[in-house]
């Protein structure tokens, strides 16, 4: 597994906390959802960043009260064929305006990168090293997008309405569609 942020393989500065293991006073941590909710006050008082792993069968509305204190939300793909977290990601970005790191965890293959990025993810725990290494190349696979999402890429329809055509779209011009 490799963590990719801003197109590069990076060291994970967050320490994952398993179940009820003790949380260090300093340093960024990622805690399970149940722990965050049970101990909300403690985590709110922490000086360093806190993140949460949010399961894909739990409504993100439940997470809303904690979002402004969270540096990171990790959403889970137990298998790459289970796409629930794409909806959660868009809800967090587009409805709840979450601005922290949105991390994709679980079975993450190169074939999902474009979908994940468009849904609002900006960090990726990539399952295979070979896939992580070609991250930037893979993002360049597509230059045309039909759907407006919060990533702001111009849709084909808007490009046509503006008479922009393919040149601007393929040059990666990103205009906010919403």
């Amino acid at each position: 597994m490799r963590l990719v942020e801003r197109g590069e393989i990076v060291e994970d500065r967050f320490l994952p906390i398993i179940a009820d293991a003790p949380v260090p006073e300093r340093g960024p941590v990622i805690v399970p959802a149940a722990r965050l909710i049970a101990d909300a006050e403690t985590f709110a008082r922490r000086a360093d960043p806190t993140g949460v792993v949010w399961p894909n069968n739990r409504r993100v509305n439940e997470l809303a009260p904690y979002l402004d204190r969270l540096a990171l939300v990790a959403l889970v793909f137990p298998s790459f064929r289970d796409g629930r977290a794409y909806s959660q990601a868009r809800q967090l970005r587009e409805n709840h305006r979450f601005r922290g790191q949105l991390r994709a965890t679980g079975q993450i293959l190169r074939d999902q990168f474009v979908f994940l990025l468009r849904a609002g993810f900006d960090a990726f725990e990539v399952s295979k090293d070979a896939d992580a290494r070609v991250f930037v190349d893979v993002l360049g696979r597509y230059s045309v997008f039909y759907q407006p999402t919060a990533d702001g890429r111009q849709t084909a329809l808007r490009a046509r309405l503006r008479g922009a055509g393919v040149d601007r779209a393929s040059a990666g011009v990103q205009e906010a569609d919403r």
Partner: peptide, 13 residues
């Protein structure tokens, strides 16, 4: 058709 082609949220229903 356009909207559903490679939809980033609904390709793994």
């Amino acid at each position: 058709r356009q909207h559903s082609t490679m939809h980033p949220e609904f390709s793994f229903l």
